[in-house]
Design a protein around this nucleic acid. Structure first.
Lengths: 214, 214
DNA sequence: GACACTATGGGGGAATCCCCGATAGGCCAC
DNA sequence: GTGGCCTATCGGGGATTCCCCCATAGTGTC
């Protein structure tokens, strides 16, 4: 009988998880938490096998919680449930110590499968995200241990930051005294390295990155 | 025995609602829908007393669904459940024909109370929101003192959110079954109302809003 | 009825995105 | 020391989007 702790600030979602888990013969809910403080306390108190963590917790990013649980209880498996854009968070979540990234929109069957996979110590990622991350891993295989961001050259990082600050291609070209075409090429190369599908995604990622490092 | 239809694109949330309703002696779930089309069909087929509607439905703004149900089945009560900013949506939701606005973060007790109130034909609004709306009605109200975001029309708000989720103009047009030109016009009007200088800024603002509001 | 707002679109030129290149320098390996 | 590989810099060209005009129809409001 595996014990599961649910961390989510929506009572309804907790109820949903609880019922889903209760229906499984080999799983049981050992606790529920609505915020980071309660979660840490319950992890220590109830010694769960698995913690399901919502990313958008009020007061604490969720990722923070993952890191703290990982630091204090390295044997506890963690599965992240989110309704956010996967491409934006999945990597950070895995880097922080979680074993799975699950979208709440997914079917209950997939959720149960994700829980079992993570309990077995395996990684779970939903859908096409798997392919993208795997592609990224094979690409970086030559320089293992590096995050995709670290693969950016200095120039690319410079352009990336300016994108994140809201500059258009033309403005960046002007600012760096370069041809627009050069900036376009840098954009393309950044997109390749970060596994981004469109310019919109590049803008999103860049803005998000800039917001975090301020 | 009152019959309740649940419309939400998150299976987990539907499960949570279903259990909550199942625990009440005078309520029963008569159906679940994940999108607008299914919802309309089930309203016609199962003749529920109450429909619980999630605002952030994929494919349709939720407000649209409210209006269509109101037009076709004016006797059906509707309660909106959302995790969005209340101040921004509550008025729109009530104007569209729903009787209640409920935040998903609320305690299960409040959710049950809201369901019963709306079934009785009374208005339910969560917490301090009530006071604010009442102030608005009685007081000077009218239009001044509104935030720029509140000046957006329903359609514009819908487009704004899709921009924030990373959709391109073409994707949005396809998603809403509209011409690209229409989306472009909406973008321009949103920019005017929010006093944004460029499309980049619009993307930036929309993305920021989408991430900050839940 | 005059006026404002909303939703839906079109025209057209500028800017951009996105895929194809090219050139030149640096670095590293065999 | 030549043949890759990466980096940085540009170009062509078509597709797409941006950004300014505009029009129509419906819905309110005074």
């Amino acid at each position: 009988m595996k014990r599961v702790l649910i961390v989510d600030d929506h009572p309804l979602v907790r109820k949903g998880f609880a019922q889903l888990i209760g229906d499984e013969p080999d799983l049981e809910v050992c606790g529920e938490a609505a915020d980071e403080a309660d979660a840490l306390q319950l992890v220590a108190a109830s010694a769960p096998d698995l913690v399901i963590i919502d990313l958008s917790l009020a007061g604490g990013s969720g990722i923070n919680l993952i890191e703290r649980i990982k630091a204090q209880h390295s044997d506890v498996r963690m599965l992240v449930a989110s309704m956010h854009d996967e491409a934006l968070f999945a990597e950070r979540v895995l880097a922080a110590g979680a074993l799975g990234y699950l979208n709440k929109q997914e079917a209950p069957d997939n959720i149960v499968r994700a829980i079992h996979r993570v309990l077995d110590g395996k990684v779970y990622l939903s859908g096409e995200l798997t392919d993208r991350l795997l592609d990224g891993l094979t690409g970086t295989a030559r320089v293992p241990g590096q995050s995709p961001m670290q693969r950016l050259s200095n120039r690319e990082l410079e352009v990336f930051e300016l994108i994140g600050r809201g500059m258009t291609t033309g403005k960046i070209a002007d600012h760096l005294q370069l041809s627009i075409k050069t900036i376009e090429t840098h954009r393309e190369n950044i997109k390749k390295k970060l596994q981004l599908a469109s310019g919109q995604e590049l803008t999103r990622r860049a803005m998000h990155w800039v917001m975090e490092r301020d």
